[in-house]
Each structure stands twice: as structure tokens, then as C-alpha cells.
Amino acid sequence: MYLAGATNRPQELDEAARRRLTKRLYIPLPSSARAWIIRNLLMKDGLFNLSTEEIDSICKLTEGYSGSDMMNLVKDASMGPLREAMRDTKITELKKEDMRPVTLQDFENALQEVRPSVSVNELGTYESWNNQFGSLSM
């Protein structure tokens, strides 16, 4: 039998739990995956029209964002075209053709609202725990 678990507080696991959980993997924040998250979520909505340079720019601005933070950012940015379309049309009358693609400006606006949820101090704590108790060193 196998058991899988996840925690944001590995330092609170006692020695008995660590002994029973023989594989302890630290999953760092996404780096190159942030671009994949942006593309994947926007393509689902059919709102993707960003250039590689624009995605690279967004990725630089989102250093330190978790996967969940990126999902929230993309959701907020994708609301930009909807908010704009609703100025001229009732939401019940909106068609997909009324929506423009998400732009870099939508992401810049969303970055004012969606902030990273993990602090640099927390990352240091996770990395330190991984160095001491993790199954794989970084």
C-alpha cells in the first residue's frame, strides 16, 4: 500500500511522520512552467494571442508566483476583455465574437491585483527543510 500526501508546512512533521514517509519531495515554484500555464489556460478560452516576447515579459514579472497564483493571474487578466465588452453590451447578449484576445496590458492590470502568495522567507524554510530531510537535494 502506498500513501501520498502534500503539505505547505513540512517543518511541522514530527520524526515519526518523516520516518513513515520515506520519499519526501520538495516541489519548487514553477519557472519555465509559468509560460505553459499562461498558454494552456488562455487557449482553453480561445483568448490566446500573445507573442513569445509578451509571454516572456509576463514570466519575468511573475517570478516567485506559484501555480495557483498564476492561475488566479490568468483568470483576472482574462476578465479584461469581458469587462471591456460589457461596457457596450449586456452580458446576456455577449457573443464570443464580441471578445478580444487577452493582451499584455490585461496582465499588467491583473498584476496590480494578484500578488504572489509565497514569501522569500517561506521559500528559504522549504529549501532548508528539503536539504535536511528531503529525498532529493537541489
Results as ranks from 00 to 15, higher is better:
residue 65 Y to C: 05
residue 136 L to T: 03
residue 91 I to H: 03
residue 29 L to H: 07
residue 44 K to T: 04
residue 67 G to A: 09
residue 115 R to D: 02
residue 6 A to T: 11
residue 77 A to N: 07
residue 83 R to N: 12
residue 59 C to P: 01
residue 45 D to K: 15
residue 19 R to M: 00
residue 105 Q to G: 01
residue 22 T to I: 07
residue 76 D to N: 09
residue 18 R to I: 09
residue 7 T to Q: 03
residue 136 L to P: 00
residue 3 L to C: 13
residue 43 M to C: 08
residue 63 E to G: 02
residue 26 Y to Q: 04
residue 131 N to H: 11
residue 79 M to D: 04
residue 136 L to M: 09
residue 46 G to S: 10
residue 89 T to W: 02
residue 98 D to Y: 06
residue 97 E to S: 15
residue 91 I to W: 04
residue 101 P to S: 12
residue 111 L to G: 08
residue 69 D to G: 10
residue 28 P to S: 06
residue 8 N to L: 04
residue 12 E to M: 12
residue 64 G to F: 08
residue 36 W to A: 11
residue 107 F to E: 08
residue 22 T to S: 12
residue 131 N to R: 15
residue 29 L to D: 02
residue 32 S to A: 14
residue 104 L to Q: 03
residue 91 I to V: 13
residue 128 S to Y: 14
residue 108 E to L: 12
residue 41 L to P: 02
residue 99 M to N: 01
residue 4 A to T: 11
residue 5 G to E: 07
residue 50 L to S: 05
residue 101 P to H: 13
residue 68 S to M: 04
residue 44 K to Q: 09
residue 53 E to I: 07
residue 62 T to C: 11
residue 53 E to Q: 15
residue 124 G to H: 14
residue 12 E to G: 00
residue 105 Q to M: 06
residue 49 N to P: 00
residue 53 E to W: 03
residue 128 S to F: 11
residue 77 A to E: 03
residue 133 F to L: 01
residue 133 F to C: 11
residue 76 D to M: 11
residue 77 A to D: 04
residue 91 I to E: 12
residue 23 K to W: 11
residue 106 D to Y: 01
residue 59 C to I: 00
residue 41 L to C: 06
residue 124 G to Y: 03
residue 138 M to L: 14
residue 16 A to S: 14
residue 79 M to F: 12
residue 20 R to P: 02
residue 67 G to K: 04
residue 79 M to L: 15
residue 9 R to K: 13
residue 24 R to P: 13
residue 55 I to V: 15
residue 20 R to A: 12
residue 120 V to W: 02
residue 56 D to N: 15
residue 12 E to L: 14
residue 128 S to V: 03
residue 106 D to V: 01
residue 77 A to G: 07
residue 24 R to W: 03
residue 119 S to L: 06
residue 86 M to W: 01
residue 48 F to Y: 15
residue 103 T to R: 06
residue 62 T to F: 07
residue 66 S to K: 04
residue 88 D to I: 00
residue 103 T to D: 09
residue 57 S to N: 11
residue 126 Y to S: 03
residue 69 D to Q: 08
residue 112 Q to R: 14
residue 53 E to H: 12
residue 90 K to N: 13
residue 3 L to S: 04
residue 131 N to T: 06
residue 38 I to D: 07
residue 13 L to G: 01
residue 46 G to H: 10
residue 114 V to W: 07
residue 62 T to A: 09
residue 50 L to A: 06
residue 126 Y to H: 12
residue 82 L to M: 15
residue 122 E to M: 14
residue 137 S to N: 14
residue 44 K to I: 05
residue 93 E to N: 14
residue 123 L to D: 00
residue 108 E to R: 15
residue 127 E to I: 13
residue 35 A to S: 14
residue 53 E to R: 13
residue 8 N to K: 08
residue 100 R to G: 01
residue 28 P to L: 08
residue 135 S to D: 11
residue 1 M to T: 10
residue 72 N to A: 15
residue 4 A to P: 00
residue 59 C to D: 08
residue 61 L to E: 14
residue 55 I to T: 10
residue 128 S to N: 13
residue 125 T to D: 12
residue 101 P to A: 07
residue 54 E to K: 03
residue 17 A to H: 02
residue 87 R to H: 11
residue 14 D to T: 08
residue 60 K to T: 07
residue 133 F to P: 01
residue 73 L to I: 03
residue 84 E to S: 10
residue 11 Q to M: 06
residue 88 D to T: 08
residue 14 D to Y: 08
residue 84 E to A: 09
residue 55 I to Q: 04
residue 22 T to Y: 00
